[in-house]
């Protein structure tokens, strides 16, 4: 069962999760191409994410991503921005 999470999560945990989700997405596309014997015609060079959120200072810093549930819950816009650029690394 999945539950909506309006509470904050640590910035580090969020970045680790995002990185793993992206890698799984790219790997999933490659695996599907291989399974269907489709040529792999694209290489993901770079992926950037501009994450609108609220950052709560502290150790470690916590993050609440912007979405309707959070906006309605707290009643304030999430005006902070985390910009992350993911690039393909060799190997």
């Amino acid at each position: 069962m999945l539950y909506d999470l309006s509470a904050s999560v640590s910035l580090g945990d969020l970045l680790i999760e995002l990185l793993q989700e992206i890698n799984e997405g790219v790997r999933g596309a490659v695996d599907t191409c291989r399974d269907l014997s489709l040529p792999i015609v694209f290489i993901v060079q770079e992926m950037s994410l501009e994450l609108k959120c609220s950052i709560i200072g502290g150790v470690p810093p916590k993050v609440v991503p912007s979405n309707p549930f959070v906006s309605n819950y707290y009643g304030v816009p999430c005006d902070d921005l985390i910009k992350v650029i993911f690039k393909t690394s060799p190997g």
Binding site: I43, V44, Q45, E46, M47, S48, K52, S66
Partner: peptide, 16 residues
Amino acid sequence: YKVEGSSLVRIQVAPA
């Protein structure tokens, strides 16, 4: 929900 409050993902791909 206003689009200004949304996040943005940008994926850049190149041909193999």
